[in-house]
Amino acid sequence: MSENNQREPWFSAKNLKLITEPIGIKNPITVLVLGICSALAVTVKLKPAFVMAISVTVVTAFSNLLISWMRNSIPNRIRIIVQLVVVAALVILVDEILKAFVYDVSKQLSVFVGLIITNCIIMGRLEAFALGNKPWPSFLDGIGNGVGYGVILVVVGFFRELLGSGTIWGYRVIPESIYVKNGGFYENNGMMIVPPMALILIGIIIWIQRTRNKSLIEE
């Protein structure tokens, strides 16, 4: 019994799993297929995708922490609204901070920062995890899911920017001289810029992940 009363170490194997699982086998985008909307919208360029990833991670982590901390006092009948208020308050804070300190990026993300509020991952984690677990594991779970979401965004953003615009993080990597308009043979893939291509890329990522991990395939 005495062992049970002992405090769990901050980064026990169980707690670490909360971070690593959502990045891999419980990935919110590729396995649970949540948060697709913003994954399509903000991944044309790498930089906004990266900032979006950080923003979502911050919001999931802290909303999980707050809701878990409040979980025993929240009136059950209005718990969804309470969650929404907490998430919305955090998102507005993030939006204001982006506007004040990374104005260019906040302009590119525009309405999608506000739409973090409706990101299914956040509500999903609050309902599924934070309401039933202690603050610290909830916080880790939030970080894990935010990063799991972010990794996919960054990968998709990387390929869409590289193949669609020939740049990475705004820097040109495919030399101007090989483009058709400069007498070369290369042309950017216009498909990469439109949202459906993000869906196709995510599909490819899911395909690769499932091929490598057979346990993800349904019967």
């Binding site: 025993n72 006092s73 929240i74 009136p75 059950n76 009948r77 209005i78 309470v82």
Partner: peptide
């Protein structure tokens, strides 16, 4: 926590 008054106050 399920009473009306509590919900309103909260």
């Amino acid at each position: 926590t399920n009473s009306n008054l509590y919900t309103f106050l909260y």
